[in-house]
């Protein structure tokens, strides 16, 4: 009967995985709109924009050194800010999305609609990803404007930094979705997300630091430890993009370039994308298995 009364839709079907792209779009738009209505996303976006702009200008002031276009503390600080902000934005948006909807009851309402779980999940993921990307793009855009005005920076190098940042933010967003799927309350989800952020940003690296000082691991072991953390993957990619070498990062960086050569940037981007895909997939599986309420 339903096929008689319904116009055929853009149904995408992979096994049990059924999606109606129209619904995905609608939910994505709705999610984007809700995300942009939230003040904290703008708080993050403006905070990131102001810092990025300030940092891009800080080193350009005097004495003609700007045009030398080197990679100094300024660029290092920019990477630092990205390392702090991008995962924070991704994790908190990701954790808040599904948990918040569940807490408000809108998720149950949405699931009561004739849309599949896949529609809901991927629509929300897409909407949140676009929201995060546009928040970051605002910051990067303003900083790029400042750099262009000062005739500094190189477009391709800068773009590679932007791409790696997007990938990092998406990986963090996916982790946030895993948290948000499991949590019942939005506050709990955000809390767990902050702990994860703290581990990624500080605790993990402090651990690596301790192991490096006490055990003096071989370069390949050290590199492996770095590659576990998506933040370090981002950092390797960003520095390689800016420099086309990882000498700055000492023996582990040199080993990475020696071992992987020209494939290194693709490997690093692939690792970040892998984190995003893995976590989104895990989050979807959890979401799919969970009860309605």
């Amino acid at each position: 009967m339903s096929s008689a009364v319904r116009k055929p839709r853009k149904l995408t079907q992979w096994g049990v995985f059924t999606m109606d792209l129209t619904f995905v779009w609608v939910i994505a738009w709705r999610e984007l709109r809700e995300a942009l209505r939230h003040k904290w996303l703008w708080f993050f976006a403006t905070g990131f924009a102001v810092l990025a702009l300030a940092l891009s200008q800080a080193g350009l002031a005097t004495a003609g050194y700007a045009g030398l276009g080197g990679f100094g503390r300024t660029a290092a600080s920019l990477i630092n800010v990205i390392l702090l902000f991008a995962p924070l934005i991704g994790l908190s948006v990701g954790a808040g999305t599904l948990a918040g909807d569940r807490e408000r009851g809108t998720l149950t309402y949405l699931m009561a609609q004739p849309v599949s779980r896949a529609d809901i999940f991927w629509g929300k993921a897409l909407g949140a990803a676009v929201a995060v990307a546009s928040a970051l793009a605002l910051g990067f855009g303003l900083a790029a404007l400042g750099l262009a005005a000062a005739r500094a920076g190189r477009a391709t190098v800068y773009l590679s930094l932007v791409v790696y940042t997007f990938l990092l933010a998406f990986a963090a967003l996916a982790m946030g979705f895993v948290i948000g799927t499991l949590a019942r309350k939005s506050a709990a989800a955000i809390g767990v997300a902050l702990v994860v952020w703290l581990v990624l940003v500080f605790a993990g690296d402090l651990g690596v630091m301790g192991v490096t000082v006490s055990l003096r691991p071989s370069p390949d072991a050290l590199l492996a430890m770095l590659l576990v953390n998506p933040l370090q993957v981002f950092k390797l990619g960003a520095v390689y993009g800016l420099r086309a070498t990882l000498d700055t990062l000492g023996v582990a960086g040199q080993y990475a370039v020696f071992r992987f050569g020209a494939a290194l940037p693709w490997l690093l981007a692939g690792l970040l994308a892998g984190w995003a895909i893995l976590c989104f997939g895990l989050a979807y599986a959890l979401f799919n298995r969970r009860g309605d309420l």
Binding site: A76, I79, N80, L83, L84, V201, F202, G204, D205, L206, V208, M209, T212, V213, R216, P217, P219, L222, L223, L226, L231, Q232, K235, V239, T248, L249, G250, V251, A252, G253
Partner: peptide, 11 residues
């Protein structure tokens, strides 16, 4: 020296 791997990181 191999600790240089961690420069630029917030840690």
């Amino acid at each position: 020296p191999s600790l240089r791997a961690l420069i630029y990181s917030p840690a």
